[in-house]
Structure formats: C-alpha cells, structure tokens
Design a protein around this nucleic acid. Structure first.
Length: 310
DNA sequence: TCTCCTCGAGATCT
DNA sequence: CTCGAGGAGA
C-alpha cells in the first residue's frame, strides 16, 4: 500500500531533533513559494565539521523566466546578475556533491528541502534523501513565549545579528548562528531535546473525573442514578455533556459495561450504517436482556434542554 | 493503560 | 508541515 503524503516525496529524509556538530546549513532563494511553479535562483550552504565551518557553497542559478520585481526587491538578486549564471542542471550536481549525505539544517527547512527534492527528481532523476533539522521546529518548542518564530524574531531573541538578510549564503550564516545559539541555550538551561519532544501524557477526559456539586436531584429524571456513555463526534462539548449528566445525578463511564444504562451517539454515528465498537457492545448487552437505551445526540439534547437554558 | 488514527488550527519559507 | 484534542480498539 502506498501512502499519499509529502506531495509524493516518499523518500524525503526524516525531521531530526538532535544537537549535531557535523552538518550542512542550507538556504535557497527562489522566484516564489511554490516548488511546482517557482524556480531556484540561488543556493547557499555552509559545511560544518566538529563545530567548525570548513566550506561554503554559494551559486546563483539562472531561471527559465525573469524574476519578478517583488523577488528582486526582496533578495537584491537582479535579472542582470542571473543572465550569465549556470542553470539548475549545472548547479545541482555540484551542490549534491557538496552536501553528500550530511544532515541539513535550515529555518523552515522543508521549504528548501522540497525545492531541492523536486529539482533533483527532475534534473538527476533521483530523490533527495538527506535527513534534516528544522530550527523553526526547535524554536517553537523551545521559545514558547515568542509571538512568532520567524527567523528575524528568533535572532532578536538570541541576540543574533540578522540585518539585511535574504541572500542565500548570508541566511545560512544567520541560521547557523541560530542553531548554535539553540545548542548553547539547551546546555545553559539543562534541556534535553529528546525529553522536550517526548510525547507528553495528555490530560485525557476521564469520566470518573466528572463530579457534581449538586446535593439534591430530580429523582424522576431519566438520567438520575443512571450510567451514561458517549461515543462518536458530538456537536456540543463532550465534557459539558458529561457534566450535565453528573449534575442531574447520573454517572458517566468511559466504556460500555454491564452496568451501562444509556449510550448516547453523536448524530453522525446514529445515522451511520457503520456501528462503532461501543455501539455493538451495547447491542450485545441488550440482546442479553440488559436495560440499555441507545439515544441520538438530538434526543439527548431534548432531554437536557432545560439544563442548557440557564 | 497503551498505541494508532483523524481532524482542524496555525505558521513559515520566497 | 507540526501539534493537540479526541476517539477507537486492543
């Protein structure tokens, strides 16, 4: 089975969260944001070994069409400058040799990787496999107090000079400073990236955590002292629905059991032919003579209508 | 209790 | 793209 994602870039490398001393910083300038419609006009890269910059790569690339005024303004790269530059099929092999199989570092590095990947497929007929580290991703997880995580903003936060950027090699230097700044920040604050990105146990909605402050209940209400289970996507907030049941003197459960009295289905599930596992389980118990009623969300809403009004 | 989905929201790159 | 919320199923 083939999974369709990555816009078909199925051999794209992995997004890493490591602190490396050997890597290649990458930045490209293009005629626009879309790898399908737009073209690369400059590739910049810095090779770092043992934390030391050992080589630079900086090449202008002649596109098939003239670049727009907007891009000229943004990058300072004019059509004059590109007139005698080599085309991408000339530059890309050199770049590939430069990066070899090293890990790529960039800010929103997917942008650069995707352009390189697609051009590599077209020019060299092979994917761009390299793994990569995205300083944007690291920043979002690390510097949560920032309003945004644009390169400028992150630089300002880390006291990194980023004035007048938007040429490829220059942006590489800035991005390298950001990456090294992040590494330093991690050390100073004793933060492990692996821990920072570890999947955190989300505070799940547990039925038993829903309690009520009410002391007196309407003992004639349908839900009084009854066990209720919700399933499927609800129109109202699930927690609210559970709270109302609790306030009526009922009890909420996470799953259908032999004690369940009501199963409330989201409207979509109620009308669907496909029955969820909870639905099937409830029907099994009904056949066995258990007192379970299956309600749609609409019916549930009618039963608690007066509760919602106040 | 744990892992795997799906869905929607929010952002960044030129 | 990445993440979080919320569910399903084991």
């Amino acid at each position: 089975m083939i999974t369709i994602y990555n816009c078909g870039r199925q051999f794209k490398g992995k997004s890493l969260i490591n602190t490396l001393n050997d890597y290649v910083v990458l930045d490209i300038e293009t005629t626009g944001l879309d790898p399908f419609f737009d073209e690369i006009i400059e590739i910049g890269a810095i090779k770092v070994i043992n934390g030391e910059c050992v080589a630079n790569f900086s090449k202008l690339v002649k596109p098939s069409k003239p670049v727009s005024d907007f891009i000229v303004q943004l990058t300072g790269i004019t059509n004059d400058m590109l007139r005698d530059s080599p085309s991408i099929d000339k530059v890309l092999p050199e770049f590939m040799e430069f990066v070899s199989d090293m890990t790529i570092i960039g800010h929103n590095v997917h942008f650069d990787i995707n352009f390189i990947y697609d051009n590599s497929m077209q020019v060299l007929n092979k994917p761009f496999f390299n793994d990569f580290i995205d300083t944007l991703r690291l920043s979002r997880r690390l510097f949560t107090s920032l309003d945004n995580h644009k390169l400028d903003t992150v630089c300002a936060f880390l006291n990194i000079d980023a004035v007048g950027h938007h040429r490829a090699l220059q942006d590489c230097q800035i991005t390298q400073n950001v990456y090294e700044g992040i590494k330093k920040y991690l050390i100073n604050n004793k933060i492990e990236l692996q821990e920072l990105f570890a999947p955190k146990k989300s505070e799940k909605l547990k039925a038993r955590n829903i309690t009520t402050d009410n002391i007196e209940f309407d003992e004639n209400h349908l839900f009084y002292k009854k066990n209720c289970v919700f399933t499927g996507a609800l129109q109202i907030v699930r927690k609210q629905a559970m709270q109302i049941v609790a306030d009526l003197g009922g009890f909420c459960q996470d799953n259908v059991t032999k004690d369940t009295n009501f199963l409330i289905l989201g409207n979509y599930d109620y009308s669907s032919n496909e029955k969820s596992s909870k639905h099937k389980k409830a029907e099994k118990y009904i056949v066995q003579g258990q007192d379970i009623r299956i309600l749609s969300e609409n019916v549930f809403m009618d039963l608690i209508a007066d509760k919602l009004k106040k």
